Amino acid sequence: MATSRSRRRLSPEARRNELIDAAIRLLESGQEVTNWVQAVTAEADSAKGTFYVYFSSWEEMLVAVRDRVLRGYVDRYRQLAESTGPVDWWAALDAECAAGVDTIARPGGIHDAVLHSNVALAPMDEELDMIAALAAALRRGMADGAFRPVDPHIAARILFTVVHAAGDAIAAGEDRRRWLETIRDLARHWLAPPGPAN
């Protein structure tokens, strides 16, 4: 645990990030929480007043959590789209679909808190458009010949919808393995170019 002296030396950005990290941990844990601000500051080992230095409300904190979660996905899709080296596109697509399914299906409140609440309606920076980032990665996979040419934006939206449905179904008790196999099969039947099966 950091000492209060080392905490005073944290930059404002680092301290704000500590609070966001703490909120993510709590949301992912699935704990019953009655006072989120108090729980987050305790998890971050900060004074309650510190929360209000960086966030005016719990809802504003949830927007920051949403942006952090989406940034992780967007950055990974952009890295794929901008990669200059060879990419195993099917392995990458399988991994990203599984990561999305697991995030949605994970017990806890992060998915509901950031995608099924009023926070989902809060304005979002264009840089965090997950569908556009996924479409860019698919477009690059098409240019590499790994995927057949389809409308990448529509393909990205359909994949996101399927992943979301799978995550919700798994959260409700359905079999994760069957869902991931089905997503894999669907993607290959739909996106594989003519030729040997992947």
Rank of each mutant, 00 (worst) to 15 (best):
16 R>Q: 06
195 G>I: 02
127 E>N: 12
103 T>F: 05
90 W>C: 05
160 F>P: 00
120 A>M: 13
181 E>W: 00
53 V>R: 14
100 G>R: 15
22 A>D: 04
44 A>Q: 03
41 T>G: 01
108 G>D: 01
70 L>C: 01
61 M>W: 09
106 R>D: 05
96 E>P: 08
57 S>H: 08
74 V>F: 05
122 A>L: 11
150 V>I: 10
33 V>H: 06
158 I>N: 06
143 A>N: 04
89 W>Q: 03
47 A>T: 10
37 V>H: 02
169 A>K: 15
131 I>G: 11
144 D>E: 03
140 R>W: 03
124 M>V: 15
62 L>G: 03
153 H>S: 14
173 G>C: 10
185 D>H: 08
88 D>F: 01
137 A>K: 09
87 V>W: 01
24 I>G: 08
160 F>M: 07
146 A>L: 03
187 A>E: 03
84 T>H: 13
156 A>E: 05
164 H>K: 15
24 I>M: 05
51 F>E: 10
58 W>T: 14
72 G>I: 03
131 I>V: 15
86 P>D: 08
168 D>R: 15
158 I>S: 06
111 H>D: 13
57 S>E: 01
67 D>G: 04
169 A>F: 07
64 A>R: 01
125 D>V: 06
195 G>R: 06
57 S>V: 07
128 L>E: 00
96 E>Q: 15
34 T>L: 05
24 I>H: 04
154 I>L: 06
36 W>P: 11
189 H>Q: 12
183 I>Y: 01
160 F>T: 12
